[in-house]
Nucleic acid binder design. Structure first.
Lengths: 290, 290
DNA sequence: GCTGTCATGAAAAGAAATTTTCAGAGGATG
DNA sequence: CATCCTCTGAAAATTTCTTTTCATGACAGC
């Protein structure tokens, strides 16, 4: 109760008058570069302040803490608050929804996944992949597993509009060798492989590597075995309050990549999209002459 | 040289591949709320991560530190650097990425979309749809457009595991009448139709309604014309700093629905999943008799 | 100058943390 | 199915940290 809600710094200041000479010396040392200077062991801070360890113990007890560990625990909490405060705690979601509704629990989890994934993700990796995918001289091959197949398809569908030479591998792994046969050195194989890693992915990656293809892997934080063969790997957080993994953040990165690629080759892409529009129109007219 | 100038976080990431299961678990725990989570004693962090103290020692040594105290000293330096640099202490992921990087702009947009969508979304609608989809007497039909087809497939793949009588309509609209023919009163047609609304969706919805099917539509904030025929419609925000729309929030709702349905019929679903596991095993053995 | 009080740190005692050892579990391999 | 290997945590051993005890010295009051 005594110490609660007040910072350690406050407590030191308010007790400063009753401290002895050596204790004041220690307090000065602690407040200087606060709160980091209190992070180490009692021995360390005693040395830094030029006092003995008993002095430290006596002071923190005088301040109202149970002992040095108690004192340090409070400091740790303050450090934590200082560091992880900013945007960390997101605002509450849907006001309509009670806090325990599945939608809110999911939102919490996804925001956490997104934050974690982005903090682990190197923008240089992202940029490298974007520029690889932008290189129209390289063929693109997309493949996914049972669940992630839809992600591969989504990625493929967009890239197919943006640039030529994109291929979606069929879900059936027995047909993969034929795709590998068509790969040229410098082509890129984009693999989605999450949890329940599919053994065939490794074989596929190995074969593609032998043909000189570069490999980009989307996997989870634990890492697909295929990631070892990859030039670049995205490790995405997939945890959700569910029996299933979440692909939301993976899709997020895919969409960001789509935009990055589209952006870097906009002039060429623009023409393609116009032509495509024309083709759609024709198809429509063809089907509905009325 | 080994550890100098690289952050502990970097070191963990670069060694992640060679870590064992328990070590990865520990690494996760450390990176989660990094670097504050590494402030306490070896005992504390071992407990937080759910591993033993020897595992902690082994990992930090594997990372190149002399021992836990050495590891912690490095962390303390980082905490100090973070705290005494006020600019750095903002968003941890923004730190790695300059403010204008596409990833950050995308993240901002997606968070906005999610917030908007959830505040517009009535949980009663969500719950109604979840309970409709949980009703095993009703057949489920999924259909999507050119881009949203992948979402429909994703939803379908999961529901197919969870319950029987699920069908994915082919992308080719000329085959849709045959599916409608098979629909019974009470069946549910789940339509994904976003922006560039596809005219055929309205015809499909109309035909399905005539057969007595219920319709659930995923659309954007402007609303597909098919939404008018729907029993329930999800209006999702799809704006992104991109030439393309974002499906991230739509996928979010799909995943939440999957969990809600799975949860409400868990007893039956459990059995199905077990059986499915068995079938996978068999397939594997069949393919690889060695 | 004597005496009592207090502050202080050396050193011992006690407690906790860290490291090492080791045996069992589990998985891969032949 | 046996064998080997690796991973893991319990428990012991070791080291370090924390607290307590106590002797010393400074200083004020008498």
């Amino acid at each position: 109760m005594t110490v609660a809600s007040k910072t350690v710094s406050d407590v030191i200041h308010s007790h400063f008058g009753v401290l002895t000479r050596a204790e004041k010396q220690l307090a000065e040392s602690l407040l200087d570069n606060y709160p980091v200077s209190g992070l180490g062991s009692i021995t360390t801070i005693a040395e830094n302040a030029g006092v003995s360890t008993p002095t430290v113990v006596r002071m923190v007890q005088k301040l109202g803490f149970k002992g040095y560990p108690d004192f340090q625990a409070h400091l740790h909490l303050e450090v934590e608050a200082t560091i992880s405060n900013p945007i960390a705690k997101h605002d509450r979601w849907a006001q309509n929804a009670p806090g325990t509704h599945i939608l809110n629990r999911f939102a919490d989890a996804i925001m956490g996944n997104l934050r974690q994934t982005l903090s682990d993700l190197d923008t240089a990796t992202f940029d490298s992949v974007a520029s690889l995918l932008s290189d129209r001289k390289r063929g693109l091959y997309f493949v996914g597993g049972r669940i992630t197949g839809a992600l591969a398809e989504y990625f493929f569908t967009h890239m197919q509009v943006i640039r030529p030479a994109t291929t979606l591998l069929s879900a059936n792994s027995s047909s993969w060798p034929q795709y590998v046969l068509n790969m040229n050195a410098g082509d890129i194989l984009i693999i989605f492989d999450i949890r329940r890693y599919e053994q065939e992915m490794v074989s596929l990656a190995t074969a593609a590597r032998k043909r000189g293809a570069e490999i980009v892997v989307f996997t989870d934080q634990w890492g697909s075995p295929a990631a070892k063969l990859a030039r670049h790997a995205f490790r995405v957080r997939i945890e959700a309050p569910s029996a299933w993994d979440s692909s939301v953040v993976t899709l997020f990165i895919v969409e960001a990549l789509i935009e990055a690629v589209q952006n870097s080759t906009w002039d060429e892409t623009k023409e393609r999209m116009k032509t495509l529009e024309g083709l759609f129109e024709q198809t429509k007219l063809f089907r509905k002459p009325g």
